[in-house]
Amino acid sequence: MDKKDYYLYVKGKAVKVDEEIYRAYWRITEHEKYLQRKDWKYNVLPFSVFDYDGHFIDNIVDESIDIEKIVEVKMQIEELNKALNSLTEEERDIITAIFFREESLRSIGERKNRSYQVIGKRRDKILEKLRKLLEGKI
């Protein structure tokens, strides 16, 4: 039985190769095609798509995220925490109960032996104090 000849084309010219090299080449080639089909199926883009002008990092900026807004909110939260820390223990307890534990004015009043109207007025005064602290008026 005649031994089959195997050829691979390099720059348009047939190059005779061993069967082992021939099979390895086609195994790799078919695997690359398989991966490419999976990329197309799941809309995966290669990094080279984003590096069309040599500035890869600049081309992958996510415009949907507003970093400035995130930093601004973080700074506001830090200022709010400072203002909350400057409250008295009773004031902090009322604010924590209302806004963090979501207790009703009535339940807070029962716990402190006061009416819910008194707790509501106290809440309003504390919020006004916090507003002034955050605006820098105190």
Rank of each mutant, 00 (worst) to 15 (best):
F50A: 10
D124G: 03
N113L: 04
S107C: 03
D62I: 10
N113I: 03
Y116T: 01
K33A: 15
F99R: 11
N113P: 00
K82L: 14
Y34F: 12
D62E: 12
V15Q: 09
G12W: 06
A24S: 14
I21G: 01
L133P: 05
D66V: 09
Q76M: 05
K33V: 11
V49K: 13
E32V: 15
Y6R: 02
F47T: 11
L134K: 10
K132L: 14
I28G: 15
I77D: 04
N43L: 07
E91G: 05
V73W: 00
Y6Q: 02
T96P: 07
V73I: 08
I95L: 10
W40T: 05
R92Y: 13
K11H: 11
I21A: 05
V10Q: 10
H31A: 14
T29D: 14
S86L: 14
F56V: 08
W40Y: 08
D53H: 04
E110K: 08
E78M: 06
E79H: 07
Y25L: 06
K3M: 07
E72C: 09
Y6L: 01
E89P: 02
T96L: 11
Y34W: 10
K132T: 12
G54W: 00
D62Q: 09
L134T: 07
F99M: 08
K13F: 08
I77K: 08
I95P: 05
D51F: 02
Q117F: 02
S104P: 03
R111H: 04
W26Q: 13
L105G: 02
V49G: 05
D53W: 03
D62G: 06
L134Y: 06
D53P: 02
E90F: 12
R131S: 13
F100C: 11
E32N: 15
R111Q: 04
M75F: 06
I21N: 02
K11F: 09
Y9K: 13
D5E: 10
G109K: 01
I108V: 07
Q117V: 03
E30V: 14
L130P: 03
A14C: 06
G109L: 00
E63C: 08
K33T: 12
T96Q: 13
L134V: 08
K132R: 15
G120M: 02
E103C: 09
I138R: 13
F50N: 06
S64Q: 10
I28N: 15
I119E: 01
E110H: 03
I138G: 13
